[in-house]
Write a protein that binds this DNA or RNA. Structure first.
Lengths: 149, 149
DNA sequence: CTGTATCCGACGTGATACTG
DNA sequence: CAGTATCACGTCGGATACAG
């Protein structure tokens, strides 16, 4: 029973930002449920998002323009940068400021909310960095005894 | 039949745990790259994973058996629980203990590494919980001014 | 420069059936 | 009970072309 969303419309796959970004099914059991858990999950999914954290980290220092970020990241496509920024904007984590000049200029900047999120995310990132050897070692060990046991 | 997909190639889609769980492309630019960034990203992707965090949180209190967890989560399929647990095991975050009884019994338990990860994850979760209203408000506001101006 | 629209392959996820 | 195998299907994400 995959939740019936509002309406499964014609697969608007373009640059719109409609999905909740994670489809949390029906967690009905005992303790790990409720709307709270669902809301938390949707935030966590943003953290796990391929680009969002990277974008947030880049914006900590100072606001940036679209192509500045695109260049800094390097591997990202225009489409995904747009989608990522729209998602962050929708969640109130970044602001989008358009300067009606020619050529157009758009600045993206972290909100206070976004800066707040950056803190626990950085803590997590630091943990990941510090324990990187253990995790990679565990992976190799697992793959070895499991791949050619 | 709008999109006949005859190209359905036989992927190894079963319960193997091969991918690095995130496919970080070629980040070659200036500062947000290198193997470090890649490793951190793979950990973050696990946090963003649909079920991993939920499983970790459940295991904090005490070890659990396969079907105990399945029942507690409720919405998860057997396959995804298996895949999630295998991924966590591969990363050295949980241990898998088989008791060769009949019927078989398998306990899953957090490692020290897993318990360590739980801390920053909980901090992040708490942030998400506390700021849930702001995020949801921002989403509604965004959708309103963007969906029906 | 800053996007938006579209095509298409790859991957994630659930449902189901089967095994030890 | 604890998985594994297979299939179906939706979504993600890159490449490309086009627009303001």
């Amino acid at each position: 029973m995959t939740k019936p969303r509002k309406n499964a419309q014609i697969l608007d796959q373009s640059t719109s930002v409609k999905s909740e970004h994670i489809r949390v099914p029906a967690l009905q059991p005992n303790e790990h449920q409720g709307p709270d858990c669902r809301a938390v999950a949707s935030v966590l999914s943003r953290v796990g998002d391929k680009w969002s954290v990277l974008v947030i980290m880049m914006l900590i220092d100072k606001p940036l323009r679209f192509n500045e970020m695109k260049r800094m990241i390097g591997g990202i496509s225009q489409r995904m940068l747009t989608l990522t920024l729209r998602g962050l904007e929708r969640d109130g984590l970044v602001t989008r400021t358009v300067f009606p000049t020619i050529p157009p200029r758009v600045d993206y900047e972290l909100t206070d909310l976004g800066r707040g999120l950056a803190l626990p995310v950085k803590a997590l990132g630091q943990w990941a960095f510090e324990h990187r050897p253990e995790i990679e070692g565990a992976r190799e060990a697992f793959d070895t005894r499991n791949g050619k046991g």
